[in-house]
Simulated scan of single mutants.
Amino acid sequence: MRIQAALIETTGGPFTIRDVDIEEPRPDEILVEITAAGICHTDLAMRDRWPERTLPMVFGHEGAGVVAAVGASITSRNVGDTVALSYRSCGKCEQCRRGQPAYCLLSELNMRGARADGSSGLRAGGRRVHGNFFGQSSFASHALAYESNVVPIPSALSPVLAAPLGCSVQTGAGTVLNVLRPTPGDTVAVFGAGSVGLSAVMAAVSLGCTVIAVDPNPARLALAHELGATDTGLTNAHHAIDTTGRPEVIARAIGALRRRGTLALVGLGGKAEFDIMTVMYNGIRIRGVVEGDASPATFLPQLVDLHRLGRLPIEKLITEYPFADIEQAARDAAGGKVVKPVLTFG
């Protein structure tokens, strides 16, 4: 079938919309017509480092839409289902069997730019197009996905709101609700007020926590305060979350914790240095977190319920762009002009 997709054709290059041919779904695949897709920091970071040998590439991993076709072995999803897309997991390894698919031992499937057998379901002008990013590649009018990352959602929920649930909202809110699990009255310090950090702010506020947001962007700090964060002094926090991946911010987060406090690391980064004696003497725990330790099939419906109850007002983070303006949306996101750009498909 002929579709439209936003291709990256050179490492670090712009998104360019092209006509692309997509295969019919294989027995284990689900074809989703995309109606909205969030742009995540990971999409932008990966396009800047994606190797030339696996280009052109279709990114996008916060898709929402309608099931258009299902493979022969799919029994739990039906044509016409409204769905949100998330990360892919194998469902069979030790971590998946233990209910921790975010740490799937085949997690590289999300980043290979290909199916498990190395093939791609996309072609343009007779040449191979790489995809399968997070098991979806949703910067396209249609995407091939899988049972593990296609989650039914209420048809009444706008796809613009549903799309960010699959990664950024899941990561931020899940870090609070699934990992840190603060009790009412605890202090939670959130470093970085992007979509992940602000989702963490909303989740912590919903639990009755005192929330401190840290970000150099005054507009984002103002939004954090609107969502319930305070200007209380940045010391003696029970929990801290770093969404930046920056060494100097991580060191500051450690310094903000009380004894036996916990730091959750969720931001992409390289190496960081910290004072071992500070961590050891104060019994500080440092915990890496992927996708909020969430299982999408069960956690995304929880997020939908929180939104319905008014406890997760994600609409305050979103700026809509037509799919044709994807490059402008990416620039605005990279420049900090918007928090969560969401592409819409006519």
Rank of each mutant, 00 (worst) to 15 (best):
L105Q: 11
A116V: 09
A163G: 03
F133Q: 03
S76T: 13
A68Y: 04
V58D: 06
E62C: 08
A64P: 09
I74K: 01
G113H: 03
T54L: 14
Q100S: 00
G125N: 13
M46A: 15
R112A: 11
G113F: 06
C90F: 12
R97A: 15
G172Q: 04
T75S: 14
G80K: 04
G135E: 03
Q100I: 10
S119P: 04
N78M: 06
A114Y: 01
I74N: 01
G99W: 02
G60P: 01
D117V: 07
D48S: 15
C93Y: 06
V83G: 08
G166H: 12
C93L: 05
F133C: 04
P56T: 09
S89R: 03
A69F: 12
T82F: 09
R123M: 12
Y103P: 00
R77Y: 01
V70D: 07
R115I: 00
A163T: 10
Y87H: 12
I153A: 05
A145D: 07
V160F: 11
N110M: 07
G99P: 11
R127Y: 00
G135S: 06
P56R: 06
M57V: 06
T75L: 03
A162W: 10
G126W: 13
F59N: 03
S168A: 15
V150L: 02
G172L: 12
V151E: 00
N149W: 04
V151L: 03
G118W: 07
